[in-house]
Structure formats: structure tokens, C-alpha cells
Design a protein around this nucleic acid. Sequence first.
DNA 1: CCGGATCCTCTGCGATACTG
DNA 2: CAGTATCGCAGAGGATCCGG
Lengths: 119, 119
Amino acid sequence: MNKNCVIYNTADFLGKKWTFLIILELYKGKNKKKRYSEIKKKLPEITPKILSQRLKELEQYKIITKNTNSSRPLIKTEYTLTKSGLGIIPIIKNIKSWALKYNTKNKHCSETNCEHCEF
Amino acid sequence: MNKNCVIYNTADFLGKKWTFLIILELYKGKNKKKRYSEIKKKLPEITPKILSQRLKELEQYKIITKNTNSSRPLIKTEYTLTKSGLGIIPIIKNIKSWALKYNTKNKHCSETNCEHCEF
DNA sequence: CCGGATCCTCTGCGATACTG
DNA sequence: CAGTATCGCAGAGGATCCGG
């Protein structure tokens, strides 16, 4: 294992707190896009600093795109997953399947459309 | 999303630095088990404190098992993946596939048996 | 009101040294 | 060999503030 390894590099940013959950939030719902405040509402425990930090990182990695609609006086910024970002969703699905199979707690989470995960 | 969500709980420990890479190291090779010092050698940048910390966590989560063979004067401790831990390997495979598909760098990493990833 | 930035605190990580 | 002890620093948590 060395620094040229793709797993090494990917684990470096995927293995950061909140990253998975932010990507998942952007995927939920019908229109597949969310505003800063909407993500914040869905993940109440994330702090504004970390959220904007993660969003910047994910934008740099081309996993999300930021669309600013500056129709005054209200600024609406919406974040959407790129094709690359959408590719992470199946990984999260695998993680959920794994957790349901081996985690003895939270058996009340259903495999799909869980009321807790909303996924 | 709330605290009963399995994804939330799983992301909480999978989304920690080095976790993915430690699990992967335990899977590599023929005998599927490694000693503390072998992991350390394969992941030179991890510090001893974090390595033992992660190993303890993973043991608590029943993702690895610790086998201590106290034949003095040398203590031999080997770590192996549990069934649950083996279940994470496909997830890592997905992450590698994703990275190879969307990461424009490191295209020299092959899909399987990469010389960098050894995976 | 929205999307952050700023300040401060505190836990977690990194680096080196050392022990049973 | 398999870790702990100690210390310093970066990143995460919490509250408040600010420009549009």
C-alpha cells in the first residue's frame, strides 16, 4: 500500500466524518438537490463550519456541484451530486446492507425506505 | 436521519481515519491474518497509538478478533477478520471500482491485483 | 431570513520515547 | 513484539456574528 493507491487516496476523504451522510442527504427526495440550510436541518448535529468545509471539499473532488442563483434579494445556493457523486450511492447502499446483516441492533431499520434512514 | 439509522451509526466508525485501510490489510495475503507489526509495516504512516486504538475499536465492533499466543518470551498477537469484517471487503472493492471509474489520476491502478493496492 | 465566517474550546490525531 | 506515556497540533464542536 502506498500513496499511489486509489484506495488510499479515496479513503482519505471518504473516511472523514459526515462525508457519507452529506452525500446521502443530497440523494434523498425527489429532486436530488438541497440547500445548505436543508442539509443542516436534516443533519442537526453537524456544525456550520464542518458543513461548509465538507461541501467545499466535495466540490473540489467533483462529487457535488454548487449552483448559485443570485436572484436578489435572496440568494439560493443548491448542491447536487455529479455523476461521480451518484456513483457513491450504491456504496452507501452496500454499507446499509452490511450493517443490517451484521449489526444486531437497529433491526427495525428496513432494507429500503427506512423511516430512520429515509433511504 | 436520526441516531437510530444504521447508516448513521456505521458511518460513525467506518468514517474514521485508517479504518478502511486496516481492514483491507487484514484481508490481503494468503492466510488472512496479520500481526500488529505487520500492519504497521504496511501502513508506515499510521502511528502506534492510532493503530492500537483502531484495533481495539474494531474488536469491540466484532469486526476483527484478536488472538494472543503468549509463548514467552515473545508475545505473538494475530488479528483476523470476523465474518462481519469480511463483509466489508466487497464495500472496499466497490470503493476501488468507483475510484477507478471517476478518478482521473491513478489510472495505472488496475481493477484487480494492483501493484499499489495489492488488492 | 440565507449562507456562511469568526472565535474559542476541546477531542482526536501525529510524532517520538519508552516499557512489560 | 506489542503496545503505553507524553506532548504538541490540527480538526471537530459550540456559540455568535455578519454581508446580501
